[in-house]
């Protein structure tokens, strides 16, 4: 009798084990980030914290653009009209904030498919004639992925950001 109980316990344990493994597999799949609904909500709330306000927002933009130009100095040329040679020039600061504002719109629309598509198409039109090389988008991504954790501290999800940034930048560059 005792043996029977023990055997049954064993099989139950085995079942629990396989269940856990299955669960873990599911978790692993969801962790291999995709810019899905939940991830988008996460990005939205993390962005709201990072984007901040007032002076902090200007400095956030400043840090991102310095990081971009440090990686691809040639990208400054694209910003000749807005004094890309000096990131602290008021005109460039204004421009940096404008860019972030566009990014802000895109992120805020992440959970509204149609509106997001319209915004991304609009941004695509704006960027099309400038012939921006793909590596500039990559540089912006790298800059963002470094300044964001500096701004947010410990609570941020790198994989989620990678996935949703790629989604947005693809929507703008169509590459």
């Amino acid at each position: 009798r005792v043996l029977e109980v023990a055997l049954r316990l064993k099989s139950v344990l085995k079942m629990i084990k396989t269940l856990i493994v299955l669960l873990l597999a599911v978790v692993a799949v969801t962790m291999a980030a995709e810019c899905d609904t939940l991830t988008r909500l996460k990005i939205k709330s993390q962005w709201r914290r990072a984007y901040s306000h007032g002076h902090d927002r200007e400095d956030f933009a400043q840090a991102i653009w310095r990081a971009v130009f440090a990686q691809v100095p040639t990208a400054r040329k694209l910003f000749d009209k807005v004094h890309g040679e000096d990131t602290t020039h008021p005109e460039f600061e204004a421009h940096a904030l404008r860019v972030l504002a566009g990014f802000d719109i895109a992120i805020n629309l992440l959970d509204q498919k149609d509106a997001l598509k319209a915004e991304l198409d609009h941004l695509h039109e704006q960027h099309k004639e400038r012939h921006i090389p793909d590596n500039y988008f990559v540089a912006f991504r790298t800059a963002l992925l470094h300044v964001l954790p500096a701004q947010l501290g410990r609570c941020w999800d790198k994989e989620a950001w990678k996935a949703c940034y790629d989604y947005i930048s693809h929507g703008i560059s169509h590459h």
């Binding site: 400095d59 400043q62 840090a63 310095r66």
Partner: peptide
């Protein structure tokens, strides 16, 4: 006061 993002980045703020 300046933002801590701008400390030690090689640019005097």
């Amino acid at each position: 006061c300046i933002n801590d993002l701008l400390f030690c980045d090689g640019h005097e703020d």
